[in-house]
Design a binder for these strands. Structure first.
Lengths: 329, 329
DNA sequence: AATAGCTTTGCAAACGTTTGCACAAATGTT
DNA sequence: AACATTTGTGCAAACGTTTGCAAAGCTATT
């Protein structure tokens, strides 16, 4: 079936294209009678305006780009979900690109975004990203750029983050308050700034007490977290509490504890930083500091809108990280 | 910074727009010298072609629409991930819309897709979808339409599905083989064809045996699944095996079993249909029939490409559903 | 020296909108 | 009856590309 355009409608009705255009937008210049006829025909023919033409003419798009290391997972999918909700509510569209943690793909994604003339870009850096020049082009072109989660260190960018420092501190203080003296703390990839921040904040609190034994470990996935946990429970003196920096780590730790039939919280306490989904499926539910991808998405979008509306000062914003009590501590 | 167009480049070089256009595409008509100059300047100025203009001129887009009930979850996020990978590999873009299981939002999403002149649509129906007329418009406009997961019953559509019948049958047979006589089978939303198919296939196998007691239940979320399980374990005679039609249901069931400290598989066996992530985090790992969102995405994309390439016959395709043995049966 | 055939470039139309401006017809004012 | 105003509509340009066709400047052939 041929596509319906303003021209088609104008030919059928014997009116000019401009009259059709105005009638469809209920322009006051057009008579009620004409408006009615135009609307009726447009409905009957299922007219849908061609966004490409509109964008070209207007020199602006209502599409956001979103670059994320991976769509699946507990965190980014919630983030994307939040962004999509807001896009819909504000009549924007969303173009999603996965970087797969590969700097070359990231560059490619940036090109795609620029060719599509996105009106704004949400980006989460890969662990490999060395140079930000491709991102700087967005600033030069006055396209709002909002980094989230994995963000650059420079202050000249908008950054929406988990309050990593505060979150790690909260967890540490909770362990302190519960008088846990022998602690196994498992962190993620050592190269990530997010890991370093969480690590430092955690240590800072813990180190204030003299009689605490702390074992710090790093790992990249669940399996390694599991092995690390196993190793520590093979020792004579076993941990009284385990701190998990992420969901991935929590999975490995729980797998080990369940296999060894170590009961929580009587034999060992567990606390995690988490999006919130996983802690709730365990029994007892795991106590965690919430690092919500959904909230991060909402905040990122708010910042984006303020950029679109002309707010030019860059800022770093944090989402709150409430403590959610389970039965694991 | 002003945007760079072919016109800008042509003015700087004192050539016509058409020459620039051809030079950038390495058209044989253009001299090597001119090509070199044009490419150099375009690179220096960071020229990015305007996709809107290209699409308008060409009357075609390279964007797919993807309508999904929800982005987050175990299943759809993997599906989306697979589609995005293929889009990138084939130089398409992807526009994602969440229907939130709301028929009105679904209709809205369809409009957005048509306005954006998507070159193809992947769609998963909401549980509320009554009418398919809005979808039919894609067929009328010769826009390839590929339904996945939750699909309509009519044969006139392309449908990419889990082999629901086979998967449910496999699970049932496995229970049979293991001599489970008292079975609790929990299914999802009763309105969905996917539920009905799984239900029927499951019953068909189970009903071949005379001495089997089966309790069929339906539910919409984890919490209800949990309550249902609890109810059945309050009875005098408790189930010997539980069949979970989906991950959501598995979560509720496991929560209940763990709270009641019912041990698996000695007191009760568990088998699920699942994407595969969840079953692996439990101890023992849950035996499941794999229903992979990722695989579904890959197959859906393949079908879409064949549609784009002119294949007009509609078909229903299935992904394989291997059995993955855990320790729960 | 005239013609034919390349090589290289430019012109102009088209894709589907929106919008400033002009204009015609109808109405109102003296 | 002449003029001013209002009301409704159309013309044409512009957004940034692509592409069929024409044409200008060559070289080669006769």
């Amino acid at each position: 079936m041929e596509t319906i355009t303003l021209k088609k409608i104008s030919e059928v009705l014997g009116l000019s294209i401009s009259t059709i255009s105005r009638a469809l937008k209920n322009h006051p210049d057009i008579s009620e009678n004409t408006k009615r006829r135009v609307h009726e025909l447009a409905d009957a023919l299922d007219y849908e305006p061609n966004i490409n033409a509109i964008n070209l003419r207007a020199k602006k798009n209502r599409v956001f780009g979103l670059i994320v290391p991976s769509i699946s997972g507990f965190f980014y999918d919630s983030f994307i979900s939040a962004i999509e909700e807001e896009c819909r509510a504000n009549a924007y569209s969303l173009m999603i690109l996965q970087s797969s943690n590969d700097a070359a793909i990231e560059i490619n994604s940036l090109h795609i975004c620029r060719q599509n003339r996105v009106c704004g870009l949400f980006a989460c850096l890969t662990t490999e990203t060395k140079s930000l020049v491709a991102f700087d082009k967005f600033n030069e072109a006055d396209i709002p750029l909002v980094f989230f989660d994995k963000v650059p260190e420079e202050t000249k960018y908008n950054k929406i983050c988990i309050a990593d420092e505060k979150a790690a501190k909260q967890a540490a203080e909770l362990l302190q308050k519960n008088n846990k003296k022998h602690i196994l703390a498992i962190f993620g990839n050592e190269n990530l700034s997010i890991t370093r921040t969480r690590f430092k904040a955690f240590q800072k609190v813990i180190s204030t007490e003299k009689d605490v034994t702390i074992y710090n470990e790093y790992c990249n996935d669940s399996d390694i977290a599991k092995k690390i946990t196993k190793k520590h429970f093979a020792k004579k003196e076993t941990p009284a509490a385990i701190f998990c920096m992420s969901d991935d780590i929590l999975i490995g730790v729980m797998k080990c504890l369940n296999e060894l039939k170590i009961s929580i919280p009587s034999e060992v306490a567990v606390i995690a930083l988490s999006d919130g989904f996983l802690p709730k499926i365990y029994t007892p539910e795991i106590t965690y500091i919430e690092t919500s991808g959904y909230k991060l998405g909402k905040l990122s979008f708010t910042k984006m809108l303020s950029c679109i509306n002309g707010n030019t000062d860059t800022e770093e914003l944090f989402i709150t990280t409430p403590l959610v009590k389970g039965g694991s501590l």
